[in-house]
């Protein structure tokens, strides 16, 4: 989160939209987030008041999430064309958008009725990867693209590899989250269903192995998504190694951008 707040204004060359919103976001996050983890124990053998406190805190998380999302969006407004040029910005904005999405989904998952379906299923796995990869990892990639050239005084060798890295990881994790969410919701609904049996009574749960069999197609798509993400990582590794071994160019250099950016050019 701090990386987004740092790199967004830095890359765009304009201040963050509102200092006060960011402070509000920080303190509401600091107070509510610590309590929110308990929503993973809903329905479990822990005191009900603790679960309820966790649910309330998870819902209060909407405040910092909306505040942060608005603040970052309003900073980007009017300068969104920079997304065409800057690798750092593209990763960071992708991460920021997914922070908002995964956090709102997390608040939803804290509802008892929704947790009854999604808890213990692949939906939770999708949510965990949404937060840890689509938000955190992507922001870290963006930060590396910004920091590394300034530390080792070399530019990234290939804009094409950065582009491949971005599209493979962004596409891969999106596919991953979508298929695992669908798998989890189907799995949860099937687990809780008590279809009407031959005797006319609602009551026989769907056999566990039938549910397992239905998830396999989604798990195969998950593997596809994982392979696509791995392709992105290989592109990054090649670019990174190439950058380390290539000779340092004398004199001034210009940053590796996706394409030539006229409005970012410094007048001679």
């Amino acid at each position: 989160m701090a990386a987004i707040y740092y790199f967004l204004p830095k890359v765009l060359g304009k201040p963050i939209h509102s200092y006060y919103l960011s402070v509000l976001g920080f303190w509401s996050l600091a107070i509510f987030y610590n309590w929110a983890g308990v929503h993973h124990l809903i329905g479990g053998p822990v005191p009900v008041w603790v679960q309820t406190a966790g649910i309330a805190a998870s819902f209060m998380m909407v405040v910092p999430v909306i505040v942060t999302g608005l603040n970052q969006h309003l900073t980007l407004v009017g300068a969104a064309s920079a997304l065409k040029y800057s690798p750092t910005l593209r990763f960071i904005v992708f991460g920021g958008v997914n922070y908002t999405l995964t956090s709102l989904a997390g608040s939803l998952m804290a509802m008892r009725s929704w947790a009854e379906i999604t808890h213990f299923t692949h939906y939770t796995v999708a949510h965990a990867h949404h937060g840890m990869y689509a938000f955190f990892t992507m922001v870290m990639f963006g930060s590396i693209y910004y920091i590394l050239p300034r530390i080792i005084l070399k530019e990234w060798p290939s804009a094409k590899l950065i582009s491949l890295h971005f599209w493979a990881t962004a596409g891969g994790i999106t596919l991953y989250v979508v298929v695992m969410s669908i798998a989890g919701i189907q799995q949860g609904l099937a687990m809780n269903a008590l279809p009407v049996g031959a005797d006319g009574h609602a009551g026989s749960p769907i056999p566990f192995l039938t549910i397992v069999a239905n998830t396999i197609q989604w798990l195969e798509l998950r593997t596809v998504a994982g392979v696509v993400i791995a392709i992105g990582h290989i592109a990054f590794a090649i670019n990174f190694t190439w950058m380390l071994v290539k000779p340092r160019q004398p004199g001034t250099s210009e940053p590796t951008l996706f394409r030539h950016a006229p409005d970012l050019e410094v007048a001679p």
Binding site: P45, T124, N192, P205
Partner: peptide
Amino acid sequence: GTDIERGWGERGSVARDYIHEKRVYLGSM
């Protein structure tokens, strides 16, 4: 949920069930 209907237990788990366990494997998946 349908844990009872699935025969996974005759009742829901309560905290007292775990008091002898140093590590509790509640699990999440």
